[in-house]
Simulated assay, not measured.
Amino acid sequence: MTTEMASAAPLSKIKSRIRRAMGPWGVFVEGFLKNPVMVGSIVPSSRQTIAKVLGPVDWDNTKLFVEYGPGVGTFCQPVLDRLRRDAMLIVIDTNPLFIDYLKRTITDSRFVAVNGSAADVEEIVRAHGHEKADYVLSGLPFSTLPPGVGPAIASATHRVLRKGGAFLVYQFTPRAGDFMAQFFKRIDKGLEWINVPPCFIFWGWKDEEA
């Protein structure tokens, strides 16, 4: 064993111990530091934000709920608590650290965590036995995504939603509404002040006549 390998092993153990001691907060911070462009905030959403974002969802008629950028699962359990027993929650994240954490900590049979891109949502949904999603939730920071990625995600989301479904977006700037407006004719807007920072909320509806 080389000197570098010998010194790396104890360092890795120390990092693992610190991560375990900090729990989900440690995983969240580490994921943010590794790829801040893809993480909306270093502070998880408040209970008030979660309740407001999920408020318009028709849970009785929801068979598939999709989330982009779940992080350490701030929205996952609230969604599962409301979801029908025969429904499914698919979460998609490009960060394998978050996906590994979610797979280890959420054991609900309705839950599926995928390491991938939100732009590939149609293929991911089909791979898990569905053609359409009822709702798609996103906390991805649209304003800081690489050029072209935001519109690609919004377009793919519109295609994968069933008629009558909705794209639920929470952001810290109003720019997400600009990306959504290219594909969603009806967008309801809200603002939650009890959040760090205050949160803009958008509900883009795929109307029946669209």
Rank of each mutant, 00 (worst) to 15 (best):
T2Y: 01
A8I: 12
S12M: 09
I14C: 07
I14N: 04
K15F: 07
S16M: 11
I18F: 01
I18Y: 00
I18C: 02
I18S: 06
R19S: 10
M22C: 09
W25S: 10
W25R: 05
G26V: 01
V27M: 08
V29F: 06
G31M: 03
G31P: 13
F32L: 02
L33C: 05
L33T: 02
K34R: 14
K34C: 05
P36K: 04
V37P: 07
I42Y: 00
I42W: 02
V43W: 07
P44E: 00
S46G: 06
Q48L: 03
T49K: 00
I50L: 12
A51V: 07
K52Q: 14
V53K: 01
L54I: 05
L54E: 08
L54A: 07
G55E: 13
V57G: 00
W59L: 08
W59M: 08
W59C: 06
T62P: 00
T62S: 11
T62W: 11
K63E: 15
L64N: 15
F65P: 01
F65N: 02
F65Y: 04
V66W: 00
V66C: 06
Y68R: 06
G73T: 06
G73F: 01
F75L: 08
C76N: 14
C76G: 10
P78A: 01
P78G: 03
V79S: 04
L80A: 06
D81S: 03
R82N: 14
D86H: 00
M88Y: 08
M88T: 15
M88A: 13
V91S: 09
I92Y: 03
T94R: 14
T94P: 03
P96S: 14
L97F: 05
L97P: 03
D100C: 11
Y101H: 15
Y101R: 15
K103R: 10
D108F: 07
S109Q: 13
R110A: 03
A113C: 09
A113T: 08
S117I: 02
E123L: 14
E123V: 12
V125E: 06
R126Q: 13
R126L: 12
R126F: 14
H128D: 15
H128E: 14
H130P: 10
H130V: 08
E131Q: 12
Y135P: 15
V136E: 07
L137R: 02
L137P: 03
G139I: 02
L140V: 07
P141L: 02
F142C: 09
F142M: 12
T144Q: 05
P147Q: 15
G148L: 13
G148E: 11
V149R: 07
V149E: 09
P151W: 12
I153Y: 02
A154M: 01
S155L: 10
T157E: 00
H158K: 04
G165Y: 07
G165F: 09
F167Y: 11
F172Y: 08
T173M: 12
T173I: 04
T173A: 11
P174T: 06
G177I: 07
M180L: 12
A181E: 13
A181S: 11
Q182A: 11
F184D: 02
R186S: 15
I187F: 09
D188G: 09
D188C: 12
G190S: 15
L191I: 13
W193Y: 10
I194D: 03
N195Q: 07
V196Y: 08
P197F: 01
C199M: 00
C199R: 02
F200Y: 14
F200P: 06
I201G: 01
F202H: 15
F202L: 15
F202K: 14
W203I: 08
E208P: 05
E209V: 15
E209H: 10
